[in-house]
Design a binder for these strands. Structure first.
Lengths: 233, 233
DNA sequence: ATGTGCCTTTGGTCATACTTTTGCGACGCA
DNA sequence: TGCGTCGCAAAAGTATGACCAAAGGCACAT
């Protein structure tokens, strides 16, 4: 992804390049940079170099100290929930580790989000969820994987938002990336399994009638299927 | 609060003040600022004002456009997992909403983290977890709430790290803040309940012998107790 | 070997100037 | 009167150069 984003300001380009380098491990923890070096390497002014480092610092990817320079932080300090960092990690060779973490996060969050949605979703959201589940079955049985993916993403995204918990809603982009990658890497069966279609329908039905326990249980069935498909067991 | 952190760089102070204003809603979404205004108001140079805005922009608390200025974003775009934002929200009047979200997140994550720890914790971590559980019982029965809190935090923090999932580990500070506030606001019983002590011990024991199901179930007992104590049911 | 103090490196902050984008109003045309 | 076009000015984006403050490291003295 060397010439990935020719558009965007200088600051944005530099941030993406550097962020990706750090996220991928090409710039190892403990590596030291100086503003001077960065100005030269990226051909930008001190202003832009500083802005970039400030953002990276706020994500805890680096810290800066006088007389030392800018130092790449140990990964255990990174703000691993920052969508930018998640994106960079998914671009790197360590993609699999990021997928594994995200999948485990989904397994934790989505069932509870389903229960929350059963409690708090609006009338419109409950209806829409049912419609998406029905559409999933139609597309699944037709074997249209691409359209299936789009609706699957819409289903999970809607559920996370309907949970009424803004922290659950905030992981929607990450879930979408996981689902997309699973399809693209051919980890989906040629036709979605009957059990998966049924589970999605059960979630929608349980949310619709406000049955928190059943919603949680059904969503649990959805995500454990994912865990198995990704070989995390 | 207002004069909370006299130390720290100019940038840091300005960031905290502004971030708190936005997080609390005192600066409503759609509000427009300019670098010029901010320089004057905080008595800082353009450099510092820009650095601050860049960080707020990277958290999606604001966006900036030429000829318009810096605009406060709608809350639905905020990076609600950024520890800085979580902290600011906990300082605001809307504290309760943040606690509710965090508690629900704990309910989702901690049982799965316990199961993961049962699979992946090191020998040392398993031992330490058991020691902390025993210490919890001792302090709980002695009624020393303050020491109990410290060990409780250590217990949950260790478990999240032992899960081997860096995203789970990353919420440790937030969990610590929730636990602390619960004690400070007198939401803890004078003496921790027997069931809670037992549940912690069961978690440690299950993790120790690698029993993922039992670890998950026991941690579930721990967190539903929390949900009830915070009146979320 | 140890402590102590200067010296130089490097980020932190400030001031200023120029560039680029763009909202909006003024003006003209139909 | 309504609509489109052009241009101005406001505000962020970028660049430059200067000075301040901290702090690592070395030399020197003890």
């Amino acid at each position: 992804m060397s010439t990935a984003t020719p558009e965007g300001g200088l600051h944005q380009r530099m941030l993406d390049t550097l962020g990706e380098s750090i996220a991928s491990g090409r710039l190892a923890p403990g590596s030291r940079l100086t503003l001077e070096d960065l100005q030269q390497e990226y051909g930008v002014s001190r202003t832009v170099a500083r802005d970039t480092m400030r953002v990276l610092e706020s994500m805890n990817l680096v810290y800066s100290r006088r007389r030392v320079g800018i130092v790449v932080q140990d990964p255990r300090h990174w703000n691993v929930f920052d969508p930018k960092l998640v994106h960079w990690r998914l671009l790197s060779e360590r993609r699999e580790a990021q997928y594994a973490s995200l999948t485990e996060l989904r397994i934790a969050v989505e069932p509870i989000a389903a229960a929350a949605a059963a409690r708090r979703a609006t009338h419109a959201q409950r209806g829409e969820l049912g419609a998406l589940a029905a559409e999933l079955r139609r597309l699944g049985e037709a074997g249209d994987l691409e359209a299936f993916l789009a609706v699957d993403i819409a289903f999970h995204r809607l559920l996370l938002h309907a949970s009424g918990n803004e922290m659950f809603a905030a992981i929607d982009e990450m879930v979408a990336e996981v689902l997309t990658s699973r399809t693209q890497q051919g980890l989906m069966p040629f036709r979605p399994e009957e059990a998966a279609l049924k589970a999605h329908e059960d979630v929608a039905a349980a949310v619709s009638r406000g049955d928190t326990n059943k919603a949680e249980e059904a969503m649990h069935r959805v995500v454990v299927e994912v865990r198995q498909a990704m070989g995390l067991d």
